[in-house]
Design a protein around this nucleic acid. Structure first.
Length: 176
DNA sequence: GTAACGATCCTC
DNA sequence: AGGATCGTTACA
């Protein structure tokens, strides 16, 4: 049954949403009504124009305009000409923040998980609030996690490179 | 126009 | 350690 996470979950700061996403169920409806369900296990927060690792650090461009929307949409982009990255836009409109979904319990790696779920360009600006093909569901179990520096953003400089805005779900954190 | 460069992954 | 592979961005 569907217990879809509401808009109010996504309109908070990325630094609150990113750890709260751990353990949530990512649901993908493919083809003839089949629904695949995965548990989110790793996320990273990207927080506004100040954050030198955030794509919005150089202001609004055609690509980053979706990050300036209010929370709840997907921000999809192609990296290295090969891999689609799945991001969840957060915060209020005008605050360009997003959370990169970096891993699932079932699939490790941001490029691998979008391949497994068949997520690509057409999901950019898709709304998790009312999309029939992708959404999130609550998971009542409590969550334990660790924090770490973000990956692949060494160019961002000392402070932003080292800040621990990556969140990893503990093994055995969920009872289900 | 043109060129440099990735929020990665796979195979040496 | 290096290559794949191409959209986005900045700059001329």
């Amino acid at each position: 049954m569907e217990n879809r996470i509401p808009l109010s979950f996504y309109t908070r700061d990325a630094l609150e949403v990113a750890p709260d996403l751990l353990g949530k169920t990512l649901c993908r409806r493919t083809g003839e009504g089949t629904v695949q369900r995965y548990t989110i296990s790793e996320t990273e927060a990207y927080c506004g124009e100040e954050d030198r690792a955030c794509h919005a650090s150089r202001g609004m461009t055609p690509r980053t305009s979706v990050m300036y929307e209010k929370g709840g949409m997907l921000y999809m982009y192609l990296i290295y000409g090969m891999y689609w990255m799945m991001n969840i836009v957060t915060a209020q409109a005008g605050h360009p923040q997003a959370v990169l979904v970096r891993g699932l319990k079932e699939v490790n790696g941001p490029g691998r998980l979008t391949r497994a779920l068949r997520l690509e360009r057409s999901f950019n600006r898709e709304s998790l609030i009312d999309s029939p093909r992708i959404w999130l569901e609550e998971n009542r179990a409590p969550v334990r996690f660790t924090t770490h520096p973000r990956i692949g953003i060494d160019y961002a400089g000392e402070y932003w490179r080292d800040v621990e805005w990556r969140f990893v779900l503990h093994e055995n954190s969920l009872s289900s």
